[in-house]
Design a protein around this nucleic acid. Structure first.
Lengths: 127, 127
DNA sequence: CCTTGGCCTTCTAGTTACTGGAAAGATTAA
DNA sequence: TTAATCTTTCCAGTAACTAGAAGGCCAAGG
């Protein structure tokens, strides 16, 4: 499988597939005689694993750890859970942040007439 | 007022105050004889305006527009409202995204025993 | 056989909004 | 006087890609 087939199979852009090997997140693939990267199913599975992990918002470093755990038959699920819980905490923190931002901004937007006149509670609040 | 006093008054790091002038977000301040930046109250007000705008998550470019509107006595509040509404939309979109991420991850975390054994629904889901 | 289009390679640089650090001059307090 | 604390500029790094340029490889149509 050359890179574009692998990228389709993994659901990642070609550039990203190359990038992940460049930074050592996944193993560098073998090459054909002319230097084309060559992927097998296992490599594609790892790429897709990273894609799903990234979709949850795990950082590249966290993906590295998760990938290690993925490939470790003797892993402790506790380690996985710990990483995932930390991310969950982060998400919840972000949600709280966004909620208060939302409430405040929604209030301001609602109270702004939004017409041709200059007076504006949004500007007043910011200034 | 030199830069550290201004930075305290505006609630921004010194580096950020310099940066905002470097990128032309705020006017470059005048200089003393030896080249120290010199800020007046109006400059500090603009810096604080940017700080509050950034806290709402407006991009630097949006801050630029908002700052222009702030200083335009003939502004239409409609323009302000439009920018703020767009940001509000974005926040809501992000909230939806986080919510579904949260639900999915919370479910996985909950169903993982988190012990010394290798089987783990989180890893299963990612793999 | 030639050309055209679509792959593939590497390398550099740009993105966002700062932040850190080094080197060196200015100012202030003890 | 000296030490600490300013201030300046400039360079580089962050995260995770993404865009683009220059050039080689390969399959199909004419």
């Amino acid at each position: 499988m050359n890179i574009s087939a692998a990228s389709k199979a993994a659901g990642l852009p070609v550039k990203t597939v190359r990038y992940y090997a460049d930074i050592g997140l996944v193993e560098a693939p073998s090459r054909t005689e002319v230097g084309y990267r060559s992927y097998d199913d296992a490599a594609v599975r790892k790429l897709a694993f990273v894609r799903r992990s990234r979709a949850f918002g795990f950082t590249i470093e966290e993906c590295r750890e998760l990938l290690d755990l993925y490939q470790d038959q003797d892993r402790n699920s506790a380690e996985v859970k710990k990483i995932a819980s930390a991310r969950l905490e982060q998400i919840e923190e972000k949600q709280r942040e966004l909620q208060s931002l939302h409430d405040e901004l929604a209030h301001l937007v609602k109270s702004c007439r939004g017409d041709h006149r200059p007076d504006c509670p949004i500007i007043d609040y910011l200034g």
